[in-house]
């Protein structure tokens, strides 16, 4: 992320300070998961291992970015009475396309994600961003806003998955990192990490740490 931002800084005005803020903000100050508490629904179950979490993060980023872009392009033509349904249809179509691609090129991951790919449709981040941002902004900032939010979501996902995979099965991205000698000495993988409840508790702890560091975040 840091590298990306350094490169993009030269490209004014496409990446003006205001646009950059759209990208960086969601990573920390207005993170969709920990601060806005959106989009947790379809996320936590895919964080048992890093790989599905990464794929999920990328899928969500793609869907948010492109749905933001499309809605922003046609925002002035959408009749407000059928606004929500138009948004839902576009999001659903994008999710179907992503799902078809996953089934074709990443079959094993798509099997692990199972219904949670479909649940991207109702991921509150997407609808939230469409309503709050894309409906009132030009396409390019909307696109950046989408990518920023997707990444902010992805970062939390990967952090949670990192701890769950490391502590739960002693692996990172499927590679064994806890050496055999540890197991011989009596170390046991924490099976609880693999089970659903720990995902919630880890997120709770992440929120705790984040809010302790940046005190200015308003408590709701």
């Amino acid at each position: 992320m840091i590298n990306n931002n350094n490169i993009t800084k030269n490209k004014e005005p496409l990446f003006s300070a205001k646009n950059l803020k759209l990208l960086k903000g969601p990573l920390n100050e207005v993170n969709p998961i920990t601060i806005q508490v959106l989009g947790i629904c379809s996320a936590l179950a895919v964080t048992v291992q890093i790989k599905p979490a990464l794929v999920m993060a990328i899928s969500v980023t793609v869907v948010v970015a492109f749905s933001n872009l499309i809605i922003s392009l046609i925002r002035n033509t959408i009749p407000s009475r059928i606004r929500i349904i138009v948004q839902l249809i576009i999001v659903a179509a994008l999710v179907i396309i992503v799902d078809q691609f996953l089934k074709a090129y990443m079959y094993d991951v798509s099997k692990k994600l199972s219904v949670f790919v479909g649940l991207i449709i109702t991921n509150c981040i997407i609808m939230g961003r469409l309503e709050a941002f894309a409906m009132n902004n030009k396409p390019w900032p909307s696109f950046l806003d989408g990518i920023g939010n997707g990444l902010g979501y992805g970062i939390i996902l990967v952090i949670v998955a990192f701890f769950r995979e490391l502590l739960g099965s002693g692996k990172i991205l499927g590679h064994q990192v806890v050496p055999q000698s540890f197991y011989d000495a009596g170390y046991i993988d924490n099976g609880l990490m693999i089970l659903p409840p720990m995902a919630l508790i880890i997120i709770g702890i992440i929120i705790w740490i984040q809010r302790s560091i940046s005190k200015n975040i308003v408590n709701n």
Partner: peptide
Amino acid sequence: PAPLKGTGITFILTGLMA
């Protein structure tokens, strides 16, 4: 603890209930 209030503690509670 102040930083844990609100959302944070709710997550942890949900985890414990789970």
